[in-house]
C-alpha cells in the first residue's frame, strides 16, 4: 500500500493508490466504448435489415460511392491509429517531444479524413444523393434508394462527429503534454483517448466495406 509514501498530485482522495485509480479509469473507458458499440449498433442493425430487404438496390446504390476516396480515408485512419499508439508508447518511454509529434500527426490525419469526407458529402449533396425526402437523384435502379443514403449519411455522419470529438480531445492532450502534465507514471488521459480513437478507427474498418465495397 502506498499510504506511507507521499500521494502524487494526480491521485484523487478516494483511491488508495495510483494503480487502483488507473485501473478504474481504464475499466471506465472500456465500458464507455461498450456503450459506443451499442450506439453504432442500432445503425448497423438498421443497415442490415434494409440491406436484407433490398439487396439489389443497395448494390446498385453503392456503385455511386467513390471507392478511392473511401480507401484513402481508410488508410488515413489506420495510419492515424498507428500514430496514436506510438504517441502512447513514446510517453511510456518518457519521450515527451515524440508524443507531441505523434499526437499532432494524429490530429493532422483526422483533419485530412474530414476534408476528404467534406468533398464526398458536397458532391453527393450537389447530385441530390441525399437521405429521406431530400433525395432527388435519378438513375439508381431498385426500390427506395434514398434509404441507402439515409444509412450512408447517418452512419458516416455519426462516425464523423466522433472524429471531430477525437480531434478536439487530442488537441487538448497536445496542450497538456506540452505543459508537462503527463509522465511515464501518469498518462491515463492519453491512454484513454487512444482507446477511443482506435474504436473510431475500428468502426470505420466496418463502414468502409459495408458502404464502399459491397453495398
Amino acid at each position: 500500500m502506498s499510504q506511507t509514501t507521499a500521494r502524487p498530485a494526480h491521485l484523487q482522495h478516494h483511491f488508495t493508490d495510483v494503480h487502483q485509480q488507473a485501473e478504474s479509469a481504464k475499466l471506465g473507458i472500456w465500458i464507455f466504448l461498450l456503450t459506443e458499440v451499442l450506439l453504432f449498433g442500432g445503425l448497423f442493425c438498421f443497415y442490415a435489415i434494409y440491406r436484407s430487404w433490398n439487396p439489389d438496390m443497395f448494390h446498385n446504390a453503392h456503385a455511386f460511392l467513390n471507392v478511392w476516396m473511401g480507401a484513402t480515408n481508410t488508410v488515413v485512419l489506420i495510419v492515424s491509429s498507428l500514430t496514436m499508439a506510438l504517441a502512447i508508447r513514446s510517453m511510456q518511454l518518457g519521450r515527451r517531444k515524440h508524443t507531441i509529434v505523434f499526437l499532432a500527426g494524429t490530429v493532422l490525419l483526422a483533419c485530412v479524413f474530414m476534408v476528404i469526407k467534406y468533398f464526398e458529402y458536397s458532391h453527393k449533396i450537389h447530385l441530390g444523393q441525399l437521405p429521406g425526402k431530400w433525395y432527388f437523384f435519378e438513375g439508381i435502379a431498385g426500390t427506395n434508394p434514398h434509404i441507402f443514403f439515409s444509412a450512408y449519411f447517418l452512419m458516416t455522419g455519426l462516425h464523423g462527429f466522433h472524429v471531430l470529438g477525437g480531434i478536439a480531445v487530442i488537441t487538448w492532450l497536445i496542450i497538456k503534454t506540452a505543459r508537462g502534465s503527463f509522465s511515464p507514471e501518469y498518462y491515463t488521459p492519453i491512454e484513454m483517448t487512444g482507446l477511443y480513437w482506435h474504436l473510431v478507427d475500428l468502426i470505420w474498418i466496418f463502414l468502409f466495406p459495408l458502404f464502399y465495397l459491397i453495398g
Partner: peptide
Amino acid sequence: VAMFFMHLKYDNRIYMLVFVGSLLFLGVFI
C-alpha cells in the same frame, strides 16, 4: 486493432470480456 493497438492481448481479461460482451449483445439485437 483491438489486440495490439488497444492492448487487449496483454491487458486484464476483463477488458476483453467487456468488448466481446458488447459485440455479443449487438449480435442478439440484430
